[in-house]
């Protein structure tokens, strides 16, 4: 089950939702007190997201990450894209703590807690190939309280920061992926806002990416594969970022030429 995140301003806590979706993992969470009154359901806001493709742009030969980002953004600007502020997507890794493991031999499951500046009031919790939970930003506080069950692997914190561009109905976010102090790679997120069914506009999206990524245009993202004609959701974008970050973490061992 996957709710849509909120882009609107007012903040209220939806503890009841956390309770529903985390009941397998959370031993006890406070039920909403009746005095609190309004516990509104999550509603689909008018600004839901369009179909998005997240991919990695390899660092150009003989260039730094910074220089490659500059080449890419210059191409976008030449195309007519307009700068529209910045963006940030971050991801923290949690191990399921040993105390909750029924079977000692089983390896702990990893949970990723992510934030996206596009949804400042939301927090995303994902398992690999598993469900995606969208909660209020207070979820972070809850995770601290649950440190007996989930332990933060602080060294694994990874994030992508960069500039947001708009071109016609497309949103493009070119980010530098950093882990700790060092730049590890480049992420390119392309969203086609008017369309909500991933497979409907893949060809169109690809043609657009080719116009500035050339032969580094990615193949169809794996999350598109099991969507059929269902509505694309922000959780799908976070799953793509999670995959990308995992891929980049693995590249960590192999020193990549050109990264300074």
């Amino acid at each position: 089950m996957c709710f849509l995140p909120r882009r609107e301003r007012e903040a209220s806590i939806y503890k009841s939702l956390l309770q529903i979706d985390l009941k397998d993992y959370i031993v006890s969470a406070e039920p909403p007190s009746p005095s609190q009154g309004l516990v509104q359901p999550y509603v689909q806001t008018s600004g839901t997201m369009g179909v998005t493709c997240v991919s990695q742009m390899p660092v150009a030969e003989g260039k730094s990450v910074q220089q490659t980002v500059e080449i890419l953004t210059r191409k976008l600007e030449l195309l007519g894209a307009e700068k529209q502020g910045t963006f940030c997507v971050d991801c923290e890794t949690y191990h399921t703590a040993a105390s909750t493991m029924g079977n000692q031999g089983q390896a702990g499951k990893l949970m990723y807690v992510m934030h996206n500046s596009e949804y400042p009031l939301s927090c995303f919790a994902l398992f690999e190939n598993g469900p995606c939970l969208i909660a209020d930003a207070n979820f972070d506080v809850l995770m601290v309280k649950l440190k007996g069950f989930f332990q933060n692997a602080k060294a694994n914190k990874i994030e992508s920061r960069g500039t947001r561009y708009q071109y016609c109905d497309f949103l493009v976010k070119v980010g530098t992926v950093t882990m700790g102090p060092s730049a590890r790679g480049i992420s390119v997120e392309v969203e086609y806002c008017p369309c909500v069914v991933a497979n409907d506009c893949w060809n169109l999206l690809m043609e657009f990416m080719q116009s500035f990524m050339g032969n580094h245009t990615p193949g169809i993202p794996s999350v598109f594969g099991n969507k059929h004609d269902s509505i694309y959701s922000p959780g799908d974008t976070m799953a793509q970022y999670m995959e990308l970050f995992n891929k980049i973490r693995k590249q960590q061992q192999v020193p990549v030429a050109g990264i300074r």
Binding site: D169, F170, D200, L204
Partner: peptide, 18 residues
């Protein structure tokens, strides 16, 4: 709307529009 290429130029996009 998002799936059909142009019957004249064969492309999906022109000036960012299908």
């Amino acid at each position: 709307l998002f799936q059909a290429p142009c019957q004249r130029c064969g492309k999906f996009l022109q000036d960012g529009l299908p």
